[in-house]
Design a protein around this nucleic acid. Sequence first.
DNA 1: AATGGATATGTACGACCATGCATATCGGTT
DNA 2: AACCGATATGCATGGTCGTACATATCCATT
Lengths: 127, 127
Amino acid sequence: MKKESGPVRPGIRLYLSDDGSEGMFGDGKWRLLRSIEEEGSIRRAAEKLGRGYRKAWGDIKRTENALGRELVRKTRGGPTGGATELTEFGRELLEGWQRYREAVMEGMEGAFELHLSGLLERSEDER
Amino acid sequence: MKKESGPVRPGIRLYLSDDGSEGMFGDGKWRLLRSIEEEGSIRRAAEKLGRGYRKAWGDIKRTENALGRELVRKTRGGPTGGATELTEFGRELLEGWQRYREAVMEGMEGAFELHLSGLLERSEDER
DNA sequence: AATGGATATGTACGACCATGCATATCGGTT
DNA sequence: AACCGATATGCATGGTCGTACATATCCATT
């Protein structure tokens, strides 16, 4: 089981927290929100992302509890069985995070080139 | 077991990778290198950081394998039992990472203020 | 009231990982 | 040669986390 291996690159994991730990909100939850907005249902959103409904549902719930606000408005029953859409707050968080994320990643690329790429490229040759 | 809970703040985890996964190098390994430089031994470095020697030793080894270069020079035996010091590459990585890390974190703070703090502060009031 | 598709939630199992325990090895000094 | 403190490693274990399985609930439409 060999892994893909290329040049050394910088990676990043961003999240929001009120106690220093991860789990409150991050890229995973962000993709989930985006998928819910597109699909209109937690189940289809989860399927599209290749996760189980159980996890997606739990993620939403834990995030809402942690933030103290609702991210989605859910309905059950009816001809379609039910549906889920983002609240206004959910949409704002989705968009704010997207901009935030892109800004930080750009900064990361720049800082990497500035402070580490030289050392690591040189390293590639010498090894 | 209640957790400390304050305002929502941005968190970050930085790492180096050649295959998208974490584990090659990050803040944990960086602190370990710094501690080794200060203490002159893996054992004392680990103790100072509150980890076991077993883990510290394994971390160094895995990182060296992943980067394909040696980070430390180790000696065994003698009156002191042995010692470990950083290689030139180890020192450069230590310093480069420190500068890289600080630059990215500053960028993160700025981006957070710009794109998310307004939304989240407003959220604090309303909840 | 019967249906169907989605939400809601507990439970269990397996993979992964951090940590600790035990033990072997090394080698300059005494 | 004995000693001592650090390096070197395997192995067992305990907890976390993702994922799967099983059910229960809901309700507009028919």
